[in-house]
Simulated assay, not measured.
Amino acid sequence: MTQAYTPFADDSYAGRTVLITGAASGMGLETARAFAAKGAEVVMADRDEAGLERYGSELRKGGAKIHTVKVDVSNPESIAEAFAYCDAHLARLDNVVTCAAIITAKRLFEQDWAHWQRVLNVNLLGTFFTVQAGVKRMLENPAGGNIVCVASDAGVHGGGGLIADTAYAASKAATLSLVKSVARELAGKKVRINALNPGPTDSPMHAHIDPSLKERIAANLPVRRMGRPEDMAAAILFLCSDAASFVYGAALDVDGGSMFR
């Protein structure tokens, strides 16, 4: 994959730290690679221990400062343990990126209570308690910090059951509201929080989409291709950078033009 993070100097994140959830694959993994390439000390957090071991080792061999920690964001105790690891191993926590999520594509009458609980526990509650723990530490950091929550274009225009369903779309819409709510509460502090709205992205999370449907989706996008995980990683890198110091409580659409607003 092409690693084109040209707007930033090679050492632009040197001396800074980041915790990334969902870092063992897809967007989270590319985000870890992006931060590592710019000199950051990275904590890769995921429930996939094998993926963490594989890619963590790969990045360390390239000279990156990488930590790996198992986390299940649907379990608040597991989130607390991940942040306890950060407290013990990092001088401070500068950035948090919440990539951990599940995508589901069930029709209306296929969705039961257990389905909604599972989606909301991971996508919404997991995001909230990760943000809460990150903010707590950043408020104690004289330099403040940055948080990016990955939402979705489905959180704006809805699901429908073909690619993403009602539960998924609702969880991402709630994530957008979460970001704005936290931003209002943190006004005047040195902690920034923003959301990222990825459009259709060709990543492991979208493995359930039929290849022919992916082709049709790409053909209907103004840029004529689906997004790539590294597209999202580059945008996240920007949102956490000094270049985005005036971007606050916003939702950045990185969607190939899927929803002009």
Results as ranks from 00 to 15, higher is better:
residue 4 A to G: 07
residue 4 A to P: 03
residue 5 Y to G: 12
residue 5 Y to Q: 08
residue 11 D to I: 02
residue 13 Y to I: 10
residue 18 V to T: 01
residue 26 G to W: 00
residue 29 L to I: 11
residue 31 T to E: 07
residue 31 T to R: 06
residue 37 A to L: 14
residue 37 A to Q: 13
residue 40 A to Y: 08
residue 45 A to W: 04
residue 46 D to H: 12
residue 46 D to Y: 11
residue 48 D to K: 14
residue 49 E to H: 03
residue 50 A to Y: 13
residue 52 L to E: 00
residue 52 L to S: 10
residue 52 L to D: 01
residue 76 P to I: 02
residue 81 E to I: 08
residue 88 A to N: 14
residue 89 H to T: 11
residue 90 L to I: 03
residue 90 L to Y: 02
residue 93 L to M: 12
residue 96 V to F: 01
residue 96 V to D: 08
residue 96 V to S: 05
residue 108 L to E: 00
residue 108 L to P: 01
residue 113 W to R: 14
residue 121 N to P: 07
residue 125 L to A: 07
residue 125 L to M: 15
residue 127 T to S: 14
residue 127 T to L: 09
residue 129 F to W: 12
residue 130 T to W: 03
residue 131 V to P: 03
residue 133 A to Y: 00
residue 133 A to L: 01
residue 137 R to H: 08
residue 143 A to T: 11
residue 148 V to F: 03
residue 148 V to I: 13
residue 150 V to H: 09
residue 151 A to H: 10
residue 155 G to T: 01
residue 165 D to E: 04
residue 169 A to N: 03
residue 175 T to K: 09
residue 180 K to E: 15
residue 181 S to A: 14
residue 187 A to W: 04
residue 191 V to G: 02
residue 194 N to I: 09
residue 194 N to F: 08
residue 195 A to H: 08
residue 196 L to H: 05
residue 197 N to C: 13
residue 206 H to S: 15
residue 212 S to K: 12
residue 215 E to L: 04
residue 216 R to V: 11
residue 228 R to V: 03
residue 229 P to M: 06
residue 230 E to L: 01
residue 240 C to K: 10
residue 243 A to T: 03
residue 244 A to Q: 10
residue 245 S to E: 15
residue 246 F to E: 15
residue 249 G to Q: 09
residue 251 A to E: 15
residue 251 A to I: 02
residue 254 V to R: 03
residue 255 D to I: 00
residue 255 D to F: 02
residue 256 G to L: 01
residue 258 S to W: 12
residue 261 R to N: 15
